[in-house]
Amino acid sequence: MYFDSLHAALAMEGHGPFVWGAYAITALVLLTLLVSPVLRARRLRRELAGDIRRREAAAGEGGYASRT
């Protein structure tokens, strides 16, 4: 490691807030970029599954009604 201590690595001779801040913002944006499609896909799949179940239920009732 280039720095002697954790403290020196955080301070970076005065540039610490800039460097760590830039990396923190980048990490946050990249994380959002990767997590958001996963969450949206999960929600979409749940909605679609719900749709199918409702439609099947409706079709089942309809079929029963038509037979009687």
Partner: peptide
């Protein structure tokens, strides 16, 4: 880039932003 490279001789440690910029 953050911990294992030497700082830039002119810019110092701020240059480490290069690895994401």
């Amino acid at each position: 880039g953050l911990l294992f490279t030497a700082p830039d001789f002119r810019q110092g440690n701020s240059y480490r932003i290069i690895y994401i910029h």
